Simulated assay, not measured.
Amino acid sequence: MRLTDHTDYSLRTLIYVAVHPDELVHVQAVADAFDIPKNHLVKIVQKLGQLGYLHTVRGRSGGIRLGRAPERIGLGEVVRAMEPDFAMVECFHQGDNACVITSACNLRGVLGEALRTYFAVLDRYTLADLVGQPAELRRLLGDAVAAVIPVSDIKVKRRVTESSS
């Protein structure tokens, strides 16, 4: 089983953000840390945000942070959401399976069992399990000071309406 780069980068992004829990992280910081093209990462961050794994803040002072606690982000759930499909061989495709031996072959059953076992293992783990050593992960990531903005430093501008002036 091999994951697409899309899923790999999704997991790495979640790990990076998880080890910066009190900060808004810039997408560029994640791209730099893992040498991932920023344009590709922006699409991944957008999807992670739509799925509720990340909370995105737009604007110059914007960034990303986890959309829920790391203990509530299951690895199996993320992989299922980010991968396009798990049809490992042609016989997994119900509608367009042209394999002539499907009716007598047990490959689909064996690989199906392997896939269920694969997800059973992933389903036992959460993002919190991946970031058990946050200080060491931050050190390995280079943790550039300019890469993150402490959440406490973000100022929210209030809109002044005519009735309140």
Rank of each mutant, 00 (worst) to 15 (best):
Y9R: 08
L11C: 09
R12H: 08
V17Y: 01
A18T: 01
H20C: 01
P21G: 06
D22Y: 08
E23P: 00
E23G: 00
L24C: 11
Q28F: 08
A29N: 12
A29I: 11
D35E: 12
P37C: 03
K38E: 14
N39E: 13
H40E: 14
L41T: 03
L41M: 04
L41Q: 01
K43A: 14
K43M: 10
I44S: 12
V45A: 15
V45F: 05
Q46K: 15
Q50A: 13
Q50N: 15
L51P: 07
Y53E: 04
Y53T: 07
L54C: 02
T56S: 13
V57W: 09
V57R: 10
R58M: 03
G59V: 00
S61P: 00
S61H: 04
L66D: 15
L66S: 13
G67T: 12
R68P: 05
R68F: 07
A69C: 09
P70T: 14
P70N: 14
E71I: 09
R72M: 06
G74Q: 12
G74S: 10
G76T: 00
G76E: 02
E77W: 03
V78D: 01
A81C: 09
A81K: 10
E83C: 15
E83Q: 13
P84C: 04
D85M: 09
F86V: 15
V89H: 15
C91N: 02
H93Y: 10
H93P: 01
Q94V: 15
Q94A: 10
Q94W: 07
G95W: 13
D96V: 05
D96S: 09
A98T: 09
A98G: 04
C99R: 10
V100C: 01
V100Q: 05
T102Y: 05
A104C: 02
C105T: 03
L107K: 09
L107R: 08
R108W: 02
G109S: 14
G109L: 11
V110W: 04
L111R: 10
G112S: 08
A114H: 08
A114N: 13
L115W: 01
T117D: 13
T117S: 12
F119N: 13
V121Y: 13
D123T: 06
R124H: 11
Y125D: 02
T126W: 02
T126A: 08
L127P: 01
L127F: 01
A128T: 05
A128Y: 01
V131W: 02
V131C: 11
Q133D: 14
A135R: 14
A135S: 10
E136K: 11
L137G: 03
R138P: 03
R138Q: 15
R138L: 12
R139M: 08
L140G: 12
L141P: 12
G142Y: 10
G142I: 11
D143I: 14
D143E: 13
D143Y: 15
V145H: 12
V145Y: 08
A147H: 08
V148P: 00
V148E: 04
I149R: 08
V151I: 15
S152C: 08
